[in-house]
Design a binder for these strands. Structure first.
Length: 656
DNA sequence: GCGGATCAC
DNA sequence: TATGGTGATCCGC
């Protein structure tokens, strides 16, 4: 049924993530849905990217088949032993005694929206937009509409579909109500997300001497009474299985898997691997294509092959009863927008992202060491660039990516069309020690900034201070601008930028044509301020550092304007006399910002010696407990094939 | 340690 | 017209 019929039914080979079975989709004409999805997608950039990924996956599968074929009998018996030994260990360490309950709200967002607008009841409805649907109610699911599907396709499937925009305030409110109920049964319950939770109900069952089934029923009734929303529950000896179980009688139902080995083994054996958390579309496909594995039982049969071809990373089911604090490891934000080749606009968007991120970090009291830029090209390829600091040029990153990755594209096609930008900060300082940052470290303040002194025309709003703690002397830091001014070099234009430019120039030499303006080998004369990823906005933060942000109103504005004029001018009405940046005359706002930048630079040089450098912000205890589902010791919930395989084996044998 | 890919919700 | 946002993890360099 697969690709063979492609000529007649090309949609059958277009496997989207929403072709898999989901609750509420039983009676759906899958063939028809798949055809419509295909027809709506065909030819789009998104579609082309899916094809690219599909080809990559096929390649991976071919490689794995080759390896598979190369395995000798000796290899296999060796790995059989490895697998069996591992299973024995897990058998020995398994704990049958706990009773876990997983609660999952039914079509949560949609249900909440229906509560607040009862006229929606009974009508097909989706929460989301024309671009993306978060949740669809059960009426809509009958048409094949489901989460992660773009709205315009959903509307094709169901023309009368009602769209409701997301409103997280509501969902948070109702989520809190449900959690009050959960708390009564397990004060240490684990919140998986707004609409999911894991409860260890072992003690409740024991103390009250009632069956888990009754507790599940009670909880569901309690949630309904508290919120008016229905949910489903699954009960099993561990969290992984409980989650699988909560999906079985959805919506508004429950399923109990008893705590005995036979029941679990029977349950597992026919369970499709895709049901297991961590096994997604790709992994499922690989396991099916290479090994012919569909169910957990088949996975067990092939355990020697799997151990031979996948990594041995530990992925056991560890203890499930020890509450643990999980620390956030990164914080990020990203935005999708309609493609633009307006570089200035892109940098403005980036500055906005930076500002939001900075605010979020401040709220959480976070300090990171690595700043990563994420972008998506017009052909939907994701690109990451770590450690961009304040020196990288967005355009360099894009150019580099294009030169490296697609020779087929002509240089002229390297336009700046980006539908997505994002920023992420990671590598936080360990908060556990409670120590303040090492004073010898450079604090990068205001790596993200914005907000001038009451400038109405500013596209940036107010500043966040703090943020980054760099741990090496050689790090490029915006903070350097506070401290390094005295040596007479301008770090903004200084040699920090050379690395990037050097790479870029090298690439250009190898490439066919030079696209960007020339002079990139001269660090002192080339960069247009507006192309600095983060730098162009930084001065405003420095204003804040001096607390001038709210000092005055109109007079300040006037002063700014006159100063701008005294330190720079625009050659031929479009070229900056100080740095050579080129901005068309009609870029009024951008030119003002650019002027501000130079002005701030000047101010900063004059006053840098007065300024205090860092403003360490102490964490407000970032140990906000997201949940305690973090792995105990060996329990690494892994998402990779190898680990998932192992994980599943463990869930089948180790934990059961 | 970085960049890409996968996964979950 | 049009395919999200946030966080995590693993693998191969």
């Amino acid at each position: 049924m697969e690709g063979s019929e492609e000529g007649d039914h090309p949609w059958q080979s277009y496997n989207t993530v929403y072709t898999t079975a989901k609750a509420g989709m039983e009676g759906v004409d899958k063939e028809k849905v798949q055809r419509i999805v295909y027809e709506m997608s065909k030819g789009s950039k998104y579609f082309q990217n899916e094809e690219r990924k599909e080809a990559f996956m096929k390649h991976k599968i071919d490689n794995m088949r080759l390896q598979f074929a190369k395995l000798t009998q000796a290899d296999l018996s060796h790995y059989q032993n490895v697998a069996d030994r591992r299973i024995l260990e897990l058998e020995a360490s398994r704990d049958l005694s706990r009773i876990w309950l997983h609660v999952d709200m039914d079509a949560f967002y949609a249900a909440v929206e229906t509560l607040s607008n009862p006229t929606l009841k009974g009508k097909p409805m989706a929460v989301g937009s024309m671009s993306m649907i978060s949740t669809a109610n059960y009426e809509a699911r009958k048409f094949g509409v489901r989460s992660a599907m773009p709205g315009f396709i959903a509307r094709k499937l169901c023309p009368e579909l009602i769209f409701v925009p997301v409103d997280f305030n509501k969902y948070n409110y109702y989520s809190d109500l449900t959690r009050k109920v959960f708390q009564r049964y397990d004060p240490n319950f684990i919140a998986g997300s707004l609409d999911e939770a894991y409860l260890d109900i072992t003690e409740v069952c024991r103390e009250r001497n009632v069956k888990s089934e009754e507790i599940a029923q009670e909880i569901r009734v309690g949630v309904y009474e508290e919120t008016g929303l229905t949910c489903s529950a699954g009960v099993a000896p561990n969290r992984l299985l409980a989650k699988v179980c909560s999906d079985i009688n959805k919506p508004n139902g429950q399923y109990v898997l008893p705590n005995n080995r036979l029941a679990v083994m029977t349950f597992i054996s026919s369970l499709p691997i895709r049901k297991i958390g961590g096994i997604g579309k790709v992994t499922e496909h690989i396991l099916k294509e290479v090994f012919g594995i569909n169910t957990c039982e088949q996975m067990l049969d092939k355990r020697s092959y799997l151990c031979a071809l996948f990594s041995q990373s530990t992925a056991g089911l560890g203890k499930t009863d020890s509450p643990q604090v999980r620390f956030r490891k990164s914080i990020s934000n990203e935005r999708t927008f309609s493609v633009t080749e307006d570089e200035v606009l892109l940098h403005k968007k980036l500055a906005e992202l930076a500002e939001m991120l900075s605010t979020d970090m401040q709220k959480e009291g976070l300090h990171g060491r690595t700043l990563t830029l994420k972008l998506k090209t017009a052909s939907f390829e994701m690109v990451l660039k770590a450690n961009i600091r304040g020196c990288s040029l967005l355009i360099d990153i894009v150019h580099e990516k294009f030169y490296m990755s697609s020779l087929s594209k002509s240089v002229h096609n390297m336009v700046f069309v980006l539908p997505l930008l994002g920023l992420r900060v990671s590598q936080f300082n360990g908060e556990k020690s409670g120590a303040t940052p090492d004073p010898t470290q450079k604090t990068i303040t205001n790596f993200i900034t914005s907000g001038g002194a009451n400038r109405k025309h500013s596209s940036f709003s107010d500043v966040a201070d703090h943020d980054f703690v760099s741990d090496t002397e050689t790090d490029v830091s915006i903070d350097g601008r506070h401290t390094d001014q005295l040596d007479g070099r301008d770090p903004f234009y200084g040699n920090h930028s050379l690395d990037v430019n050097y790479q870029c120039c090298t690439l250009w030499k190898n490439g066919a044509e030079k696209v960007q303006t020339s002079d990139n080998d001269d660090p002192n004369s080339n960069h247009s301020g507006c192309t600095e990823v983060l730098g162009s906005t930084s001065f405003q933060g420095q204003f804040q550092g001096k607390n001038v942000n709210n000092e005055s109103n109109l007079p300040e504005d006037d002063r700014l304007n006159s100063c701008r004029e005294t330190i720079m001018l625009w050659l031929d009405d479009y070229k900056c006399s100080l740095c050579g940046a080129e901005l068309p005359p009609n870029f009024v706002e951008e030119r003002l910002e650019h002027s501000d930048f130079h002005f701030a630079e000047k101010l900063q040089k004059e006053e840098s010696s007065i300024r205090q450098v860092s403003t360490p912000i102490h964490s407000q205890d970032q140990k906000h407990r997201i949940n305690r589902q973090s792995k105990s010791k060996k329990q690494k919930l892994s998402h990779k094939e190898g680990s998932c395989v192992q994980y599943s084996i463990n869930s089948a044998y180790g934990s059961y």
